[in-house]
Design a protein around this nucleic acid. Structure first.
Lengths: 336, 336
DNA sequence: TTAAACGCGACCTATTTTGTCGCACTTTGA
DNA sequence: TCAAAGTGCGACAAAATAGGTCGCGTTTAA
């Protein structure tokens, strides 16, 4: 007989929907009954079956009845959202999708695919159809040159994620920078770092217990092993980066001072290089003063702006930039 | 009396949830009854009231009963997801959140806040709590220097979106580059373009019918007017960009050829500059050949890599880079 | 081959659903 | 200020449904 509590049906079916997996071969009614029971819904297996049948009429559920017990799950790629989407949200999402597509391998964005699709629908369904080409409303350009994001097969990305999350070793074939043949390695995955379009897996090998970055793009084969991964006791990603384990983050803080053009001053006022940035103007020249991290990126940036920026302060940086410029110019003068 | 069709309750309640807004002062039962009716659910207003009360016990709904008629809506910032999130999705989302936070003003990302929160919960709730600090698993670094994303008040961003979507004029106070005082303008919004951390609204004024980019950061006040915006008949964003209306996108396609270092060759092989990129190796030097768009960004990039790249082909580009290098170096030599 | 597990149709009753009505209270506009 | 229209909600009764139980035929695993 039905329990005394009223309104159990809706919350039970709601819970049921959340229990259904999106991937894999689905869950059986017995499993689901058990899981519901653990969550306080004591019902018969029969009821679960009936619930699933009812829900199937409203939601994109898939019942794999190839073999018994049947496997219930969400249809692939389905994304049902409860809260309707506001128009402005849809516009934001359009922009973000454009942005992400250019910045990271498509595989990384899969988790948001459903939501982006929803946004596209929302915009396409606008009355009057004025924005059928809603791409005419928003556009994203990367800050630098539009490098192509490397393709990372979903299979490889997912294996890396599994290894990370389940703390299991990964057997990979890795194409080393110089080598012709990929090398077979067994990695202990520690962290995932993305720099621009480039993704790195930070990992150790059993032979080489110092964490190293491995370019994800260079994995050609990968397998999640049963063996647990050995995580160095005091590894933290923050520490690793601070120690300069990856060339991008680390480095000393320096107090940069430079003369800059008026235009660059305007740009920097709007997007400062650091919190303590200070731009002063003496007669016709602008002076920049800011604390930044001394990295390759900084050198690249200074060089890219070199016609309108002249480093004055850390003497080391000043001479480094000067000598790089000299070296570069040499190539051109030689050939003239 | 109840209709003949069975299973109406569940689908009606789901539909109801979908009809509830997330923002604003909420919808009244009458409105909701009307909307349900349009969707094929012919029920009494009383039933809608009862449904809402039932749903309120399960979902974070908010009934604003300050004044009659009551306003029903989702609680602010609530995001209820049907499909449970897979762990790997949560990891991807962690990375993307990190990325977006650094690349665009926080306001832009609001549409995804709920989903990111869900991912954070998922990761925080991992068994063993080993990844309580899930930030230890993924990290994003921007491709260039980490410029601070300008703060754009949500109010301003939302007004811009409304103006765009509803095609209405915007009254704004805009801080022009040189000017001391913000100028009051009436804009016809056309499109939204984001370049790195900088956001631009493309718009015309009635006095000045040529579309121009306005830096969003520089809007200090904004109001959506009732008046419809005047969209130039043949404006398309693509065309505008191709015509070089914004300095970043436009420009001619040129066939770039350059000598590059071995390291740069490796990097470019992984993230090519263009589809037809070709890198050949003659004796000890590598030669790059690729079709790219001649833009400021390209010049910046070549300068940033100048110690390891020497442009050979478009003579104009070659001499432009050389003269920029010379100009830059002059600043350093003068002072030595 | 056999026993356990599974899907599902059928049955039956307590519970729930839902239209209707009526009363009290708000809001609105003159 | 007042009246009319709109709104929230308690109560009620008829109808429909939800959910436990049983049992049969089939599938699966030992």
């Amino acid at each position: 007989m039905p329990r005394a509590a009223k309104q159990a049906t809706l919350s039970r079916q709601w819970e049921l929907l959340r229990l259904l997996p999106k991937i894999g071969s689905g869950k059986s009614t017995s499993e689901l009954r058990q899981m519901l029971s653990e969550r306080g819904f004591e019902v018969t297996k029969r009821t679960v079956e009936r619930d699933l049948l009812d829900l199937q009429e409203i939601f994109p559920l898939d019942c794999n009845d190839a073999g018994q017990p049947y496997g219930w799950r969400w249809l692939a790629d389905s994304h049902v959202s409860l809260q309707g989407m506001e128009l402005s949200e849809a516009l934001s999402l359009g922009l973000l999708e454009d942005l992400l597509k250019q910045l990271v391998p498509p595989t990384f964005v899969e988790a948001l695919k459903g939501r982006f699709a929803e946004a596209a629908n929302k915009l396409a369904a606008l009355p009057g159809n004025q924005y059928a080409r809603w791409a005419d409303l928003v556009r994203y350009f990367p800050p630098g040159l539009p490098f192509a994001a490397p393709q990372v097969p979903g299979r490889i990305f997912r294996s890396i994620q599994r290894g990370l999350l389940e703390q299991r070793q990964l057997a990979v074939a890795y194409q080393k920078a110089g080598a012709d043949q990929p090398a077979d390695l067994t990695l202990n995955p520690l962290a995932l770092v993305q720099q621009g379009v480039r993704g790195y897996l930070i990992a150790t090998t059993d032979k080489h217990p110092e964490p190293c970055p491995y370019l994800i793009r260079r994995f050609s084969a990968i397998e999640v092993l049963e063996a647990p991964s050995h995580r160095p006791a005091n590894f933290t990603l923050d520490q690793f980066i601070t120690d300069g384990g990856v060339q991008f983050g680390g480095g000393k803080r320096i107090s940069l001072r430079a003369t800059i053009s008026k235009d660059l001053a305007t740009v920097l006022r709007e997007t400062p290089l650091g919190e303590d940035q200070n731009i002063t103007r003496r007669s016709d020249t602008h002076h920049l003063s800011v604390t930044v991290i001394d990295s390759w990126q900084l050198h690249f940036w200074i060089l890219s702006q070199s016609p309108v920026i002249t480093v004055t302060h850390p003497e080391a940086l000043r001479s480094a930039i000067a000598s790089k410029l000299r070296e570069a110019l040499l190539q051109y003068d030689d050939n003239v």
